[in-house]
């Protein structure tokens, strides 16, 4: 009898995360509480707290990712046992309460490839919560940074150019600025047309976490793969992911009247073509239109994408570097538009 009790005690210890020797489990009670733990390890999302080895869940990538200063992003989703995500007919993925979307940001040539920060988007009963964690210097754990922080980093972009920036880890509110729809936090990337489950994941694993994994049809063009779509289609995919989270009628930039969703009419004035600046200030760069067909150098959408000045740059948060390859695609798209008659 005593031995049974001892075994039970050990099991309880494991469950509470008190013993590091056994396989960790996600602390689901903590995930679903209102808590904002100071240390990322408290959630038990990683094995041995190694950001590259999730303790549970399934990895994913995106057809068109949001540009964040050339960071490599490692993403996975942790879904509580016995619950499943569901792909809606509108392509929106419905995640159950207790889900955590985990996204780690880093560069291969910074900290030996270890991430600088890990952002959590947690589905709680009250809605989604965003929590930013910055990895400690020893790389063993990450610490909550509600107020955000500037982290100096030096890295090379794919074209070989060296960058030395003060990378901005967003604060909790800035997470919401991008992730807001009608005042509520929502995930940005995970939509059926953009969401790619880890190709190595078995059908069994997919079905374990998704009610209808076949509903995930990543159909959006890949902005940097010419085989995946025309220049215009890839430009629109780029705008959808990089801009439309704010530039939609219920987003943070609703008042601008510039709406850049994949589903918006790309010929309409609200898509920016022939649209005069609203509240753009210096962002207009002395130009008359967001997009002047045929004239990328007279389109202030390009001017804002190619600036890192906080009074000019778009997006307003999350970028301290110009995404040259993305800007080049948009330049080509605008250059190929027939010039307006005016």
């Amino acid at each position: 009898m005593k031995r049974v009790l001892a075994a039970l005690g050990a099991a309880l210890l494991c469950a509470s995360g008190g013993a590091a020797l056994v396989a960790p489990a996600v602390d689901q009670a903590l995930v679903e509480s209102d808590a904002m733990p100071a240390k990322l390890s408290a959630f038990g999302l990683f094995r041995g707290n190694d950001p590259k080895t999730p303790s549970t869940g399934i990895g994913y990538t995106l057809r068109a990712p949001l540009f964040s200063d050339y960071t490599d992003k490692h993403r996975f989703v942790s879904i509580p046992a016995g619950k499943k995500a569901k792909v809606g007919s509108d392509g929106v993925i419905e995640f159950p309460v207790g889900t955590v979307l985990v996204k780690s940001f880093g560069w291969s040539d910074v900290n030996d490839g270890r991430p600088v920060e890990t952002r959590l988007l947690i589905r709680r009963a009250s809605g989604w919560t965003a929590l930013p964690y910055i990895w400690d210097a020893d790389g063993k754990d990450a610490t909550l940074a509600l107020g955000g922080r500037r982290v100096p980093v030096a890295f090379k972009s794919p074209d070989g150019e060296a960058h030395s920036i003060r990378y901005a880890v967003p604060n909790k509110n800035q997470c919401k600025e991008c992730h807001s729809l009608g005042g509520e936090i929502v995930p940005i990337g995970p939509k059926a047309r953009n969401f790619i489950l880890d190709p190595a994941a078995s059908d069994k694993l997919r079905s374990l976490y998704f009610e209808n994994p076949a509903g995930l049809k990543p159909s959006m063009p890949q902005w940097d793969d010419p085989k995946s779509g025309s220049v215009a289609d890839r430009a629109r995919a780029y705008l959808d992911v990089n801009c439309a989270h704010c530039h939609n009628p219920a987003g943070s930039a609703s008042n601008s009247g510039l709406f850049l969703r994949w589903t918006d009419d790309p010929a309409g004035v609200n898509y920016g073509i022939g649209k005069r600046p609203t509240a753009a200030g210096r962002g207009s760069g002395g130009m008359e239109f967001a997009i002047a067909p045929g004239e990328p150098d007279h389109s202030f959408l390009i001017y804002r994408l190619e600036s890192t000045d906080p009074g000019i740059a778009m997006p307003e948060v999350g970028r301290s570097t110009v995404h040259r390859e993305g800007a080049a695609l948009l330049r080509q798209w605008i250059a190929e538009m027939p010039k307006a008659s005016h």
Partner: peptide
């Protein structure tokens, strides 16, 4: 010395009262 954000202070909640301070030389609003 502002390096980021489109304004000095952004308020997105209701019933807020801002009083008795100054905001100088923001890069944007």
């Amino acid at each position: 010395g502002q390096q980021g954000a489109g304004e000095g202070l952004l308020v997105t909640s209701d019933d807020v009262f801002l009083t008795e301070f100054a905001v100088l030389n923001t890069r944007g609003d």
